[in-house]
């Protein structure tokens, strides 16, 4: 998936700064202020988005430590039971959240590059049977991936028959 928020935000900031801001009536103070705030918030999103997951994991780590400390000092009761349940659940989530989104993206990119190279060379040099198998495998994988890519950009309205593309949430729910 190539059309990510980072590239979109980057382009939106440039458009607003270079094309829209100079065109706003300088006497329309409200519009000017709203636009400058919008550019400012988008700029902050662009900078902070790559750190969002780390920020959340860091917070979860500290909250888990906080819960351990609280348990040592608190008396029993319903509230403490809720805290223990939340701590157990949170610890489980933290165990499973070991790789960052950036690492997942990097792994995808490495696999794309390596499999693209292998698919091309194997198809070029293979026997007719191997070539047919490679073609079938690439087309099958591409069909699944492109369905998700198309569902991802569905709000843009490119599809002639949008009813044939399932919602992205449904497609991702099955993975």
């Amino acid at each position: 998936m190539q059309l990510r928020p980072d590239i979109s935000i980057h382009a939106m900031i440039k458009s607003l700064t270079d094309a829209v801001l100079p065109a706003v009536d300088p006497n329309n103070k409200l519009a000017l202020e709203q636009l400058q705030l919008t550019i400012g918030l988008l700029s902050m999103m662009e900078q902070r988005m790559p750190l969002e997951f780390k920020f959340d994991c860091d917070e979860l780590d500290r909250l888990l430590g906080f819960a351990v400390e609280l348990k040592r000092h608190a008396r029993g009761g319903e509230a403490l039971a809720d805290l223990v349940a939340s701590e157990t659940q949170g610890a489980d989530v933290r165990r499973r959240a070991q790789a960052s989104p950036a690492e997942v993206v990097a792994a995808n990119r490495a696999l794309r590059a390596a499999s693209g190279a292998v698919a091309a060379s194997a198809y070029r040099d293979g026997t007719p049977e191997q070539r047919a198998a490679i073609m079938k495998t690439v087309l099958s994988m591409s069909g699944q991936q492109l369905l998700r890519d198309r569902a991802w950009v569905m709000p843009q309205g490119w599809e002639a028959q949008p009813e044939l593309v399932p919602p992205i949430a449904d497609l991702l729910a099955t993975s």
């Binding site: 190539q2 590239i7 382009a11 939106m12 440039k14 094309a19 492109l146 198309r150 843009q156 490119w158």
Partner: peptide
């Protein structure tokens, strides 16, 4: 990505069409 055009936001928008074309 490199801010090379007068309408980068349009380039980003067109990226979304690539998936349909590749399909």
């Amino acid at each position: 990505r490199n801010g090379k055009t007068h309408q980068d936001v349009l380039q980003a928008w067109i990226m979304g069409y690539g998936y349909k074309m590749m399909d």
